[in-house]
Design a binder for these strands. Structure first.
Lengths: 196, 196
DNA sequence: TGTACATCAGTGAACGCGCGTTCACTGATGTAC
DNA sequence: TGTACATCAGTGAACGCGCGTTCACTGATGTAC
């Protein structure tokens, strides 16, 4: 009985956390990443900034948990993808990173800062490893080949680089940028031909 | 006579600018990118923070000019490379981005922030286009093929992605990370085989 | 040669702001006896 | 049933700090006549 109550409370706590995380994720598409502060997230969620610290140790801690949930969604999306092919995988990944400002910004936020060695960064590193493994599994499932592990790592890293490089590419419209990224993604996976 | 004096003055001004830029570039390897402020750059250069604003309109303006100079150096380095091959090109690019913290951070700084539309960002966009063209030229010179333009774009973007993804990859030592990145870079250019 | 003026590098101090985070407190709910 | 106590979500206000940038000013150098 007691433990059930405790569990309910724990669930409720998790729910509250995810409300805060979703508020943050919402904001990312409304406001430039670097202009978002704790007060913004709080008011988006309808609470005070101080409240957030009941649930997260720091801003980076909230961010890393947000990214974890988001990565879970990507993995799920890739797993449930219909008519799976390596081309479709690439397009889906590129589109996700292009459209979900939150995902991309959070990913860069943690990837680009090295050093520092905070608790949040350690958490991120665990997720990073986990994601690489999951992505590798998905690629393996798809190709059936016993390809060496670093191939799928090369694959994802390349796609990430393409999105980073061209998501704000000048002159082009958003639509053209998307098409360019798709084109390049297909170049990357083009089989049996020189890549460059 | 007058115009000579004016020119000398202009030269001196450019020299002073480059002193500030070099001070900033120096700092990037000493201190995490996001902890560097105008006062740091100023004291590294031996002037006051206010002085910087005699030469640069803003922090981002200084940064973008620093990046321009750095990109010039990369292009020069790639052009002067001995025993040129596409493999060596890849390794050189990867190493440069891995070792020159300044280059990598500045590149990400401008690539990741979109929107905003500041004067500095517009400057960056010109350089971005210019760099893509130069890099394309180098790749073309090297391969001799009439490869389509987006191939060299795919190539560089992939390498950038690899560095972003693995430069702080946990568990591994710095040496192992470098080796991993080299390995992946070679996978990316591996010809006549499936990329993934 | 001397004097008045213009130019501009350089600066210390301050402005103004916003940030992440903490504190002391309230009030609601559940628990113990 | 009532009372004392514990727990904890939530908060307004403040802390403390550092940032990019501006301002009013000094002083050196060059120019004009």
């Amino acid at each position: 009985m007691e433990s059930t109550f405790l569990k309910l409370k724990e669930n409720e706590r998790e729910l509250r956390k995810s409300v805060l995380i979703e508020a943050a994720m919402n904001l990312f598409s409304k406001k430039p990443f670097h202009e978002i502060g704790m007060r913004d997230i709080a008011s988006e969620a309808g609470v005070s900034a101080a409240s957030i610290y009941r649930y997260f140790a720091s801003k980076d801690d909230l961010y890393v948990e947000a990214l974890i949930i988001d990565i879970g969604k990507i993995i799920k999306k890739l797993d449930e993808m219909e008519k799976r092919s390596i081309e479709k995988l690439a397009i889906t990944v590129v589109d996700y990173m292009f459209d979900q400002e939150a995902t991309f910004q959070l990913m860069c936020h943690f990837l680009v800062r090295g050093e520092e060695a905070s608790a949040a960064l350690e958490k991120f590193h665990s997720v990073q490893i986990l994601f690489v493994k999951e992505f590798n599994r998905i690629v393996k499932d798809l190709t059936g080949e016993k390809n060496k592990e670093f191939h799928s790592e090369a694959f994802f890293a390349s796609l990430a680089g393409v999105v980073m490089m061209f998501r704000n590419y000048p002159v082009l419209t958003k639509k053209e940028r998307r098409e360019l990224m798709h084109k390049i993604a297909l170049v990357i996976i083009e089989k049996g031909k020189p890549v460059i």
